[in-house]
Design a protein around this nucleic acid. Sequence first.
DNA 1: AAACCAACCAACCGCGTTCTC
DNA 2: TGAGAACGCGGTTGGTTGGTT
Length: 293
Amino acid sequence: MGRKPCCPKEGLNRGAWTSMEDGILVSYIQKHGEGKWGSLPRRAGLKRCGKSCRLRWLNYLRPGIKRGNISDDEEELIIRLHRLLGNRWSLIAGRLPGRTDNEIKNYWNTTLGKKVLKNSSISKEESEAAGASSKRRPFSQPTRTVRDAAPKAHAHGRPPEASPVRSKALRCTSTTMLHAVQPAAHARHGCALEAAAGDDHVNAAEQQTVVVVKAPTVEVRQDHLPEDDLSIDIDLDLDFDMGELGFLSPWRGVVADSIELGGQFGGDELDDDLEALLLGPGGDDDIHEFAWF
DNA sequence: AAACCAACCAACCGCGTTCTC
DNA sequence: TGAGAACGCGGTTGGTTGGTT
């Protein structure tokens, strides 16, 4: 028994979207909003699968989508984020306004992956193995390493040792949550703290939550979070090693000296890579966000 | 000019997670 | 609380385009 298909294949258009279909989808969503993808095609009068509509909207038709011309800064950020997050394209895309996960994934598989491979100190055998496998071999990491390594069962404890990152914020030492501007895309996969603080109460596009590590105290629980105050200090219990501290992105436009770095992670204890991440390409003018996986 | 090949990218697919009843 | 539906993610596919021979 196979998996039930998301929608019947018969009678549906497949392949490239026509401009007429695009127009129908855009005008429908402008009128009724996103969501309910399963029934959207029928309601909008499109002969398309709901998933196809969703993908078309998110990757192509949605307002604010930037296309092509990935800048050097964006490229550098993608490389850094990929080093930290692996193939978590939606998370990476969440740090690049106007970019979609699909675009970044494609860009990585076709362009950046090669660059990185070229510049990296990958062993000769690894290079040969990669080259021999397929002429169109993507440059992705092995599939699902992150998700597999951080299953639901570990949601409130330490992940398996092999896990490079956790998929969600679990426990933190002490944090200071500063005021915030948070892209909507961040709410789902970013730190749960941020999602809880940012969701619903404020315009997501104009908000940002910065979480700064200080010193250990209490376990993180969502009910510690304020309902309506985004400018808060809370103490939270951190249970991670230096290597588990994930860096998500440099944020611009917020005063950098709002960030405190203290406790075990401050000053000289930062290794070069992390320090570089903290400072970012814009030096002190960047604001940074941390998350725990 | 034609054939071939590689690169690119939009779209599809299957699976895991979250939501709803 | 469990089942099914809906959603979202990441890997893969296949059509198109541009360069080379």
